[in-house]
């Protein structure tokens, strides 16, 4: 490896890892939006993955190759508890039930000594490498791409356009929606585990309302036509504040306005590609 590249990677290691993690989070948002639902629990699921995996590493001393897949267990359980009752109902229920989750978990983290209270957890071993993050990101994109091209993807797109029509055509809408929510919890949990094991510190305030909305802005900026588009959105919105350091106060204002603008004027996102499929 040439020296300048080595230098570059070392200097920007943190940013490079964050980019990959945010890409995974954008995918976890994409999966839910792709079936026409809105979950605002991505940050909360990420936090659950981060905290549960950090505890597994620090208290149970489990090796990382066990911790990483196990980090999605707790988020999936929460997704089941919230998703099963709400997905029987209209879409607003899932959104309402998940939007509060992050803030509630914040107050729980703050008050439970096992997870360090307000101080958070410090000294988590740095076991997540960039190649793992990007490897998983590529695997996730490829998997979602293949699913999107298959008949499942066609069913997903149909229920996004019109869930009633899709169910009349024999698509089991609720099962797909629950599956999407669980997949989203898995991706967010793993992203949480990776980010906890690369920054060595996690705190209760990192998984509340603001990150939840920021993750939504990733997917809406990129667009939800293809999985790659939402990852592009995440990369843009992660790099932009780095370039505009002087305006850090206004970063969240900007993220919020992106959501407004994307829904009102750019419903298909910046990368308005459509999945290609063979005719049925």
């Amino acid at each position: 490896m040439p020296a300048w590249l080595d230098d570059f990677l070392w200097t920007y290691q943190n940013l490079i890892n964050t980019l990959g993690v945010n890409g995974l989070l954008a995918l976890s948002m994409y999966v839910v939006l792709a079936v026409g639902q809105l979950s605002l629990g991505q940050a909360a699921f990420m936090g659950l993955g981060a905290y549960s995996s950090a505890l597994m590493t620090m208290k149970l001393h489990l090796p990382f190759f066990v911790v990483l897949p196990a980090s999605c267990v707790v988020p999936v359980l929460f997704a089941l508890a919230i998703g099963v009752p709400t997905l029987r109902l209209s879409g607003v229920y899932l959104a309402i039930a998940t939007i509060g989750l992050g803030e509630v978990l914040r107050t729980v983290y703050l008050n439970v000594d096992l997870v360090g209270g307000a101080l958070g957890l410090n000294g988590i071993p740095e076991r997540a490498e960039a190649w793992m993050i990007y490897g998983l990101l590529v695997v996730a994109i490829a998997a979602l791409w293949l699913i999107g091209r298959s008949h499942v993807g066609r069913a997903m797109e149909a229920m996004r356009q019109d869930p009633v029509a899709a169910s009349v055509m024999g698509v089991d809408v609720q099962r797909y929606q629950l599956g999407a929510l669980l997949a989203s919890a898995v991706l967010a949990g793993i992203a949480g585990c990776l980010s906890a094991h690369q920054s060595s510190f996690i705190g209760p305030n990192e998984y509340g309302f603001e990150p939840a909305v920021t993750i939504l802005s990733f997917a809406l900026l990129g667009g939800i036509g293809t999985p790659v588009a939402s990852v592009v959105g995440a990369f843009i919105l992660t790099l932009l504040p780095e370039l505009l350091r002087g305006f850090s106060d206004l970063r969240l204002v900007f993220n919020g306005l992106i959501i407004v603008a994307a829904v009102l004027f750019l419903p298909r996102g910046l990368v308005a590609l459509r999945m290609r499929r063979r005719a049925a």
Partner: peptide, 20 residues
């Protein structure tokens, strides 16, 4: 527009308002 679109717009709006 579908109800989730309006929910998302108000969500983005409120983040911008609080942060501002």
């Amino acid at each position: 527009a579908p109800e989730l679109s309006s929910l998302m717009v108000t969500l983005g709006g409120v983040l911008a308002l609080y942060a501002g």
